Amino acid sequence: MDEQCRNCPALCETRTQVVHGYGDVGADFLFVGERPSRAADESGVPLVARDSAAESGTEVDTGADADTADDLRRILERLALCDATSPADQPELENVYLTTLTRCRHPERPPTAEEIDTCEPYLNAEIRMINPEILVPIGDRALSVLGTDYTTTPADELVLPDAHATTIRGRGFELVPMEAPRDRTPAQTQTWIEHFADLMASDYRQTKGRQKR
């Protein structure tokens, strides 16, 4: 994983660092968001990191990025996949790995399709390394990319909110899509947690040579 990647010149000018994946490298569950948040750009931890200023009460991440961090952290804690006492910028994760479609952040816009394509080898390398059982795409863009690359389901059937809290058979994986926090109701969050908890309690492991935990 190249920490000095220069493949997307526009993003190189705005990032603090390249944000690769984070978590348990032997995880069964791999969550994929769209891009690093401002806090992730600062800390190097995707999806759940909060701004270091949060503890002091000064300016912190706001908007969709902050919503995603708080929301996903609470979900992981409820599923016993994250230690609730661990630091905000260095969460202790068990059986879960977090990553994003792109590795660098532009503060004023989402990544372009070309930038997502350029970062795809990093995502593919992480998926091959982790070899998870379940992929969790968060939001429409992550679902579109993972659904296209890792399932045989027609693209027009891979849409949110219809696919939210469902299980989609993939090529050696299963996908459990999650609606993005900014578009999701509390009831939808509860539905997803219940669906995922049921899946965790089931015999979800595929026949891929993985030793059972």
Score class of each variant (00 low, 15 high):
135 L>R: 00
19 V>R: 05
54 A>Q: 00
19 V>W: 09
113 A>L: 08
196 F>C: 06
61 D>Q: 10
51 D>H: 07
95 N>A: 05
153 T>D: 09
204 Y>D: 09
77 E>G: 10
62 T>A: 07
43 S>A: 10
20 H>S: 11
211 Q>W: 15
54 A>S: 08
116 I>N: 06
33 G>F: 01
166 T>N: 05
16 T>Q: 14
204 Y>I: 03
99 T>H: 06
165 A>L: 02
117 D>G: 03
158 L>D: 04
129 M>R: 15
13 E>F: 03
203 D>V: 02
187 A>C: 10
75 I>V: 10
47 L>V: 03
149 D>N: 14
71 D>A: 06
57 G>R: 01
153 T>K: 05
46 P>D: 04
78 R>Y: 14
211 Q>N: 14
203 D>W: 12
23 G>F: 01
107 P>W: 02
7 N>T: 01
126 E>S: 09
71 D>V: 10
2 D>V: 12
72 L>E: 00
169 R>S: 15
40 A>E: 05
199 L>R: 11
196 F>Q: 09
190 Q>R: 12
23 G>S: 04
199 L>P: 01
81 L>D: 01
31 F>R: 03
172 G>E: 09
66 A>M: 12
38 R>E: 13
100 T>Q: 06
9 P>F: 10
117 D>M: 06
125 A>F: 02
118 T>A: 15
191 T>M: 14
135 L>N: 08
144 S>C: 11
158 L>W: 05
27 A>Q: 07
46 P>I: 08
135 L>Y: 09
127 I>W: 00
135 L>K: 04
148 T>F: 04
106 H>I: 11
180 A>V: 15
195 H>V: 07
96 V>G: 07
191 T>I: 15
207 T>L: 15
132 P>Q: 06
55 E>P: 08
9 P>R: 07
204 Y>T: 03
202 S>W: 11
58 T>F: 13
163 A>E: 04
66 A>I: 06
45 V>H: 01
67 D>G: 13
140 D>L: 12
155 A>I: 04
2 D>Y: 12
16 T>D: 14
27 A>P: 09
145 V>R: 06
118 T>P: 08
211 Q>E: 14
54 A>H: 03
165 A>E: 00
39 A>C: 00
125 A>G: 09
181 P>G: 08
82 C>A: 13
139 G>Q: 01
130 I>N: 10
163 A>T: 10
189 T>W: 08
137 P>G: 01
88 A>D: 13
69 A>T: 13
146 L>Q: 04
6 R>G: 12
169 R>V: 09
